[in-house]
Amino acid sequence: MTVERDFLKAGNPRKIVNLYATVLSSDSRNSIEGELREHVAGLFSLALTHFAFAERLRAADWRQQVSRYYYACYNASKALRFFSEGHFSAEVADHKKIGELPDDFNDKDKFKLNLENMRTDRNTSDYDHIAVAADLLATPPEIATTTRDFLTAVRDYCLARGLTLGEV
């Protein structure tokens, strides 16, 4: 995959295409859409990398598991938001948007709650030095299931809209 690094700096590609629809050629619009899709696939691939890493960890490494599962979901959420809205951010505040899913996303409310809880659990795992696994809102196996389900739902959402992503 070859992606243009500066593409993300240009702003929201969906808004740009809509704003300049009358002056952009069909080839230009297709090129922008193709580049957006390459970045979405790259973000989803990163999500799968975090997921695979978490899956290899031992149960005793629950802190690292929770963190990697969270980052799998966070990157899948970023991919989904970029695909559906054209919005991309590398700012820390973007983590607060993990549960902002498209209105037509299956089980949106369930995933929103689970993703926001996972963010809380990730913060507990990463920053609370006296925390134990029982302090989490969900158990690490439940977090693993949520992650697998969310990655599958993101993949299916994109596939239904013509974008094939990696296997979960």
Rank of each mutant, 00 (worst) to 15 (best):
1 M>W: 04
1 M>Y: 04
2 T>G: 08
6 D>K: 11
6 D>G: 12
9 K>H: 11
10 A>V: 08
10 A>P: 00
12 N>W: 07
16 I>Q: 02
17 V>N: 02
18 N>Q: 09
18 N>S: 08
20 Y>P: 00
23 V>A: 05
25 S>T: 15
25 S>C: 04
26 S>P: 06
26 S>G: 10
31 S>N: 13
33 E>C: 02
35 E>V: 07
35 E>W: 00
41 A>C: 05
42 G>M: 09
42 G>K: 12
45 S>N: 13
45 S>Y: 14
49 T>Y: 09
53 F>H: 10
57 L>G: 05
57 L>D: 11
58 R>N: 13
60 A>Y: 08
61 D>E: 15
62 W>A: 15
66 V>T: 15
66 V>M: 08
71 Y>Q: 08
72 A>R: 06
72 A>F: 10
76 A>V: 06
76 A>Y: 01
78 K>H: 05
80 L>T: 02
81 R>N: 06
83 F>D: 03
85 E>L: 10
88 F>A: 06
89 S>P: 04
94 D>Q: 10
95 H>R: 13
95 H>L: 13
96 K>P: 03
97 K>N: 04
97 K>P: 01
98 I>N: 00
99 G>V: 12
100 E>H: 04
102 P>V: 02
104 D>M: 07
108 K>E: 01
111 F>Y: 05
114 N>P: 02
118 M>T: 12
119 R>H: 11
120 T>C: 08
120 T>F: 07
121 D>A: 10
121 D>K: 09
125 S>R: 07
125 S>P: 08
126 D>L: 12
131 A>D: 09
133 A>E: 14
133 A>K: 15
137 L>G: 13
137 L>W: 05
138 A>R: 15
139 T>I: 08
140 P>I: 11
146 T>Y: 08
146 T>Q: 07
147 T>S: 10
149 D>R: 14
150 F>V: 03
152 T>A: 03
153 A>E: 01
153 A>Q: 01
153 A>P: 00
154 V>G: 00
154 V>Q: 00
158 C>M: 03
158 C>I: 03
163 L>E: 00
167 E>R: 14
168 V>A: 03
